[in-house]
Structures are given as structure tokens and as C-alpha cells.
Design a protein around this nucleic acid. Structure first.
Lengths: 232, 232
DNA sequence: ACTTTCCTAAATCCATGGATGTAAATCAAT
DNA sequence: ATTGATTTACATCCATGGATTTAGGAAAGT
């Protein structure tokens, strides 16, 4: 099977030339891959990607001159089919999280066994997103810390629940930056009525002005709640 | 080593009584675990958790009467040391994502081999967050889809970049719901100066009022950018 | 039938917000 | 040395926002 497919084309970006050679050899041993280029410069790497459109990029994200994460973002903006695996010396949860967030399809530590890297490459080339189990564990902890408050507020005493459906509509328009006049026009009611609703909203949310009302709404999952309801 | 530690206390919640018995036997085979209770009702499960404070809960999240995810949220709100592993019949990415988001420490399919479940339990009891590789792969795809737009806006022509550092500070205070007077007091400058800054902000962000400015800021990653800078 | 809640609306009054123009002091860069 | 950007500040004027009170009709629950 495998030998009939064309070789996957891989590009390596790492500011350490020695490391670069090492990975290149490692990958060239695998008969199903072909290294189409190597470079120690992120900027050069981006140019090479535009030129060769490789299937996969191994990107060192601990480079001095240019931030590897930023480079990944730029590559993602090109909207190519090229998959990116981040290579890093650190298993820092924040780094892993950010890399995955901007679209890296994998994250492998430089200290990991080469078999691990090969496995990651295989998985990613097969369309999967792959994190070694030790790293995914870290990722999830970070993820849960990040979303804990959000999930918590989702359910605790939420002043938004006291709003009537009309007030929800008005607040929804407020959260889109409309003023009284615009809201009145969109709801086909008079401006004074809108003012009445907005004042009631202020009371219920215990805030003093529109901006605070909008902030309260956004911080308490209003969009998630209401857009579903209104568009349904 | 292991036999000197007290047995980990496990609670099972699954509306299918047969399945419940199956898991119970499976777990009791393991000498290091002890099933302290089983129930087919989510509400009863929550009561049992309050009473026994088990180390781990295996929670079926596909139950008709009460949503398992909701139950997990309620348990999390108790702020106990109890870890939760979600059991599900479906490898739906959205389900997995939501379960992990609200604090499940693991997610295992009912169709998976029992060894897989035992492994997950071990990992979670050791303080890790564990998703079988097939599911974590799905999770990451979903995660990246969810954050793609956010990451995209992060880098495209962002009007926030034209703000001076003082204007950033003012906008930051605006995004916290402050009015002119409050901002002036916090920055030790006059109210008219604040107005000047705010007007310049409006010009640069091409908006008409504070609410729109705040919304623009929030929608374009302002908090992420600035809080780091100011608190640093 | 009666009460309550919701949506609508207006009047009034005051506070706050926003637009515009002007200008001085500071500082970095050329 | 001069320019340009930034931060500070004020005046003025008008627009918008917000508080408060009152009130009628509709709908829903008791």
C-alpha cells in the first residue's frame, strides 16, 4: 500500500543546524517521507513553504530571532494544506496551549524518542491532531484551569435570568453596539419604550450604564444563551 | 507500595443496571479500588457523592432523565476532591469538548476495552487528566475549529495597534465599565484629558461611542494583549 | 373577576457623553 | 535645531443617555 503513495514532503525549520541535520537523517530513514528543505530561519521557512507547499512542517518554536508561534500563525494565514508540528524544548502548558490554539497539528518535545516523533508525523499526515499523552495531559489541565471560571459563571446565580424576553432582545442589540434610536428602529417600537426597557435592564443587572450592562452580558454567557434562542 | 495505600473509593452512576453491574465487577477485580456505591440516578448519585466523598466517580453522561453533563457541573460546584470520568456511548466531539470544559478528568467510551477504562482510572487517580488518544484527537480538532476565527482576528489588520500606550490604558479602563470621572481618578488626570483620549480612540477604532469601542476591543483580543503588557 | 407581569409610551429633568478646535509641555528621532 | 508624536488640558456646544413617574392595554395565572 504505502509504497505506492507518493512520499510525503517534509520541511524542517530549526535554528540549531546540528539538530536540523539530525532530524533530517532520522526522517530520511523513513522511506515514506522526503525532506524537501531545511532552514534555520523562520522567515526563510515561510518563503520555502510558499514555494514548495510541503505536506508537513516541523517547526522549532524556541528560536531567538523570530517567535516560532508567530511563524505558525503566518503560515496558517496562507490557508495551505500544509500541516505543522511544533518542536519545542519545553513542555510548558501555556506554550502547548497556544501552539494548538493557533492550529499546530502536533507538539513534540525535542527530548522525546525519535520513534515518538515518527509516530506523531504519521498521525498528523493521516489527518489527525496528535499530542503525546504526557503533553495532552498538561494541555487538558491548562484548558480546564482556563475554562473553570467560565463554566462556573455559566450556572451560578445569573442576573440575566431575570430578564424578560423583550429585555433580552434589547440587551442583545445593545451588545451589538446599537444606540436607542437604532434599537427602536430595529424593534419597531418607540425610542422611549426602548429607554424603559433599558432602564429595567439596568435595575435587574445592577449596573449604571449601557457599557456595564453589555459587559455583564458578555461575561455571563449572554451570547451563548440568547443567540440560540432568538435564531431558533 | 500500592497495597499500603488505602483503596481508592469509586462511585458508579449509570442508568443501565446491567452495565452498572458489569463495571462494578470489573473494578472490584482490581485490588486497589473499592466500589463504594452504585446508582442509576444522577440525582441520587449527587447525594451519594456528598455523603461518601469518593475519590472517583464514573458518570454515564447519556442518561434520559437528567443530563449527565449537568450533573457533572453540579458536582464540580461542590468543590470536592472527587475526580470525575465521563462514560459515554458516543465519541461526539462536542460532547467530549463540553465534558472536559466543565471539569471531567477523563472521557471513556463504553465500547472501549476494559483495560482502557482501568488505565484511565489509574491516570486520573494519579492526578492527571486523561483522554484516550482517539478521543483527544477528536477533541483537538474541535478545539481548533472553535478557536480558528479567534486566532485569525488576532493577527489581521487590527486597529488596536494604532493606539498609543496611554490610549490603551484608557481603553482598558473603558472595558471595565468605567465612566470618564472614574478613569480620570484612576489615572490621576483631568476628565477633559480623558475625553480627549477617548475621542482619539473612537477615531482610530472608527466607532461612534464607548460601547462600540469596548466591543471592538473585546472582539479583537484587546484583553489578551494589554493585560499582559500593563501587569508586566 | 382580580392581580400580576409584560410591553408599550410619554413627559420631564438632569447628567453624561461626544465633537471640535486650540494649545502647551515633553520627548524621541532626524 | 526642528519636526512629529504623545500627553496633558480647557472651552464650548449639542446629542445622547439615564432616572423617575405615570399610565394604558394585553396576557396569563389565581
Amino acid at each position: 500500500m504505502r509504497e505506492f503513495k507518493r512520499k510525503a514532503r517534509v520541511l524542517l525549520i530549526d535554528d540549531n543546524a546540528d539538530h536540523l541535520r539530525g532530524i533530517k537523517e532520522l526522517i530520511n530513514i523513513e522511506t515514506s517521507y522526503e525532506v524537501v528543505g531545511t532552514t534555520t530561519s523562520a522567515n526563510m521557512g515561510i518563503n520555502l513553504i510558499k514555494k514548495y507547499q510541503p505536506d508537513l512542517v516541523l517547526m522549532d518554536i524556541n528560536m531567538p530571532e523570530k517567535d516560532g508561534l508567530q511563524a505558525i500563525q503566518e503560515i496558517e494565514k496562507l490557508e495551505l494544506e500544509t500541516k505543522i508540528i511544533a518542536l519545542s524544548g519545553y513542555d510548558d502548558a501555556d506554550l502547548i496551549f497556544r501552539a494548538m490554539k493557533i492550529g499546530a497539528k502536533g507538539y513534540v518535545l525535542k527530548t522525546m524518542a525519535s520513534a515518538q516523533l515518527i509516530y506523531a508525523i504519521d498521525e498528523v499526515l493521516n489527518g489527525k491532531v496528535y499530542l503525546p499523552s504526557a503533553l495532552s495531559s498538561r494541555f487538558f489541565e491548562y484548558f480546564q484551569r482556563t475554562f473553570k471560571e467560565e463554566a462556573a459563571t455559566q450556572n451560578e446565580e445569573n442576573l440575566l435570568n431575570y430578564l424578560t424576553s423583550r429585555e433580552e432582545e434589547v440587551l442583545d442589540l445593545l451588545t451589538q453596539g446599537n444606540n436607542y434610536k437604532a434599537i427602536a428602529a430595529k424593534l419597531f417600537i418607540s425610542e422611549t419604550t426602548v429607554k424603559t426597557h433599558v432602564n429595567n435592564i439596568f435595575q435587574k443587572l445592577q449596573v449604571n450604564d449601557r457599557t456595564q450592562a453589555v459587559l455583564y452580558a458578555l461575561n455571563n454567557g449572554f451570547a451563548n444563551k440568547v443567540r440560540a434562542k432568538i435564531s431558533a
